[in-house]
């Protein structure tokens, strides 16, 4: 089975999530899987669907520093996105993935893990939705199931600006205590800290594209031209993901 691929480069969070939603419609209508690689610029805070914006993010500080704050369509926790991350979205008809949600997370994350193995990084899946390296989180993933499709997106940290990350995210003591981590800063790491030579966004993209192709038995990736969706993405970006009605929903 062929799949579509696109690399949309670095864009705002509101653009990226509008793009995800438009591509979800595309997969729902065509039945053709889509893999998208992308990044965030400007830096953004995204919160899980069920989170309260003001409960999670110091929005005043975010506004002062030009950080966009956007609600995702997926659950999970708040994430600070900067330009030192690689992000993917995989959208598939539900029948191509395990109907068991826990298993399907692992199925998708396996492509990241196997890609990191080619770099001699022994990462592991940490249920429900994380990938860890040496017990530190390197990747968070989140999934939704709509319109007969599964959409999973996730972030792989290449480098981490921990100070920026935790200056904007409100992290409660309970979470830290529970995970028996003495410092918030020790909970996450970027893969470049574990590599002799830092890897670029383009290089990790090349590796992971190959892994997704192999692990999902796609015969090939055909490029998907984003320009045909531009007006729909712009509309959704301005009417949903840039609006308080959505972002401050909870």
């Amino acid at each position: 089975m062929k799949a579509k691929f696109l690399n949309t480069g670095f864009n705002s969070a509101s653009f990226n999530f509008a793009c995800d939603e438009v591509l979800l419609d595309y997969v729902s209508k065509t039945g053709i899987p889509v893999l998208r690689f992308y990044g965030f610029n400007p830096s953004s805070c995204t919160i899980g669907y069920f989170q309260g914006m003001e409960l999670e993010i110091d929005t005043q500080k975010a506004n002062q520093t030009g950080v966009e704050c956007v609600r995702r369509i997926t659950g999970g926790g708040a994430v600070m996105h900067d330009q030192n991350q690689f992000t993917y979205t995989l959208i598939l008809p539900q029948k191509l993935l395990s109907q068991n949600i826990l298993e399907s997370y692992e199925q998708v994350c396996y492509s990241i893990i196997s890609g990191l193995k080619t770099l001699d990084l022994q990462a592991e899946f940490a249920p429900l939705n994380d990938i860890i390296l040496n017990n530190q989180k390197i990747s968070g993933n989140a999934q939704t199931r709509k319109k007969g499709c599964v959409l999973q997106h996730g972030t792989l940290l290449l480098d981490v600006d921990v100070d920026l990350m935790f200056s904007l995210l409100k992290v409660p003591d309970e979470k830290i205590k529970y995970k028996l981590i003495q410092s918030v800063k020790k909970r996450v790491t970027g893969i470049n800290q574990h590599l002799k030579n830092p890897i670029s966004f383009d290089e990790i993209s090349r590796i992971l594209k190959e892994e997704f192709l192999k692990n999902f038995n796609f015969s090939e990736f055909e490029d998907l031209d984003i320009s045909e969706f531009n007006s729909t993405i712009e509309k959704l970006q301005s009417e949903k993901y840039s609006c308080d009605e959505w972002n401050l929903k909870y």
């Binding site: 899980g48 669907y49 069920f50 989170q51 309260g52 409960l55 369509i73 997926t74 659950g75 999970g76 926790g77 708040a78 949600i101 429900l128 939705n129 989140a142 999934q143 939704t144 199931r145 709509k146 909870y250």
Partner: peptide
């Protein structure tokens, strides 16, 4: 009212 970093499918069930 319930908020948090959990997952619920379908999301509209909250």
């Amino acid at each position: 009212k319930l908020r948090g970093d959990f997952f619920m499918h379908p999301e509209s069930s909250l």
